[in-house]
């Protein structure tokens, strides 16, 4: 099979899986959060509400596409796409399973760098949507987005840097491999246990990056009605929604890859398909944690969020990189290359 055909087929499959995953993630979130809140959740469309995402999608497709007065049209229409595309692009380098079959470009030797770079692209979509909407709430949302995501990009980038140091490679396939040195065995090889500080910073930054509660200031309903997407409806809104959820999946997949040993697990050598199952389970656990946090915590205030990004996460992440480098130089157990 020529490379072009293979890559195209794999991409198509990945996008199909992600879009279905996004739709059912929204159902999972509604079901799970309903249970946490002493409710039942959607159960009318199909058995157990399984057709709810279809109903939602159809509704949004058939909505009238309204363009408010005074918007900057090219940017207004481009912004939703600018949010979705980088979120999908993130998956290009993530190894979802063992072996070349389940990998698109995960042997890219600057994978970690690519991830951090592509992730920051999404902020353009949100900031531009805010600016182009000709709405004061949207402007405030766009401003918040720009400031928040830059503040947390740094902490996240540096926590990934510590992981790259540990694996001595920026390729995501190598990072997964580095979490399975024979001498550790089991889950102690995961960077979650060998790099707990980096893992904690990554988690906090991930919440800010995806702009989910408690860091959902960008679209804080109670303050800014809907923030940057106030003026968006129908499929344009659906694209923002899709962007947020795909990014949530992407960040969970990245956390799995960086800290939870990626696709690894018992018997993957005998049955490679199991690796995909392990990867999926780990990602779903991360997603449930995202939802659980949303149901529990109140929203952080904008200035406190910025304080934490610049005054806590950034210095701690920097110090962590330094300490990691020293530990590796000293060759301590667990930090030997």
């Amino acid at each position: 099979m020529p490379v072009v055909v293979e890559v195209t087929l794999k991409s198509a499959a990945l996008i199909f899986v992600l879009l279905t995953g996004f739709a059912y993630l929204s159902l999972l979130e509604r079901k799970f959060i309903a249970r946490l809140q002493a409710r039942i959740g959607p159960n009318r469309a199909g058995p157990f509400g399984l057709l709810q995402p279809v109903a939602d999608g159809l509704k949004l497709i058939f909505k009238e596409s309204v363009t408010p007065k005074g918007v900057d049209k090219p940017i207004y229409f481009l912004a939703p796409a600018l949010v979705v595309v980088p979120a999908l692009m993130l998956f290009a380098v993530i190894p979802v399973g063992k072996g070349a079959t389940f990998q698109l470009a995960s042997d890219l030797n600057v994978g970690a760098l690519y991830v951090v770079g592509v992730m920051s692209l999404a902020v353009y979509g949100i900031a531009l949507a805010g600016w182009a909407s000709n709405n004061k709430y949207a402007v405030l949302g766009g401003l918040r987005a720009a400031a928040q995501m830059i503040a947390y990009e740094l902490g996240m980038g540096l926590s990934v840097a510590a992981v790259v140091l540990m694996a001595s490679s920026a390729s995501l396939a190598d990072i997964v491999a580095a979490q399975y040195p024979e001498q550790y065995g089991g889950i102690l090889g995961w960077f979650l246990f060998r790099q707990p500080v980096a893992a904690a910073i990554f988690v906090i930054a991930a919440f800010a990056e995806v702009a989910r509660a408690p860091f959902d200031l960008v679209e804080a309903e109670q303050e800014l009605t809907a923030g940057f997407m106030t003026e968006y409806g129908g499929m344009k809104f659906a694209l923002f929604f899709m962007g947020e959820y795909v990014k949530m999946i992407a960040v969970s997949a990245l956390f799995t890859t960086f800290f939870l040993g990626g696709w690894s697990g018992p018997f993957v050598n005998e049955a490679p398909i199991l690796s995909v199952v392990y990867f999926t389970i780990k990602v779903v656990v991360c997603l449930l944690a995202f939802i659980w946090v949303r149901a529990t915590l109140p929203r952080v205030r904008y200035d406190k969020l910025m304080d934490m990004g610049w005054k806590v996460l950034f210095p701690v992440a920097l110090a962590n990189v330094l300490v990691t480098a020293v530990l590796i130089l000293l060759g301590l157990p667990g930090y030997r290359l």
Binding site: L36, Q37, A38, R39, A213, P214, D216, A220, Q222, R294, A295, T296, L297, P298, R299
Partner: peptide, 13 residues
């Protein structure tokens, strides 16, 4: 009040 501050579960409780 809790919902306004983003703690949405308290509202339903």
């Amino acid at each position: 009040h809790a919902l306004d501050l983003g703690a949405m579960s308290v509202f339903l409780y």
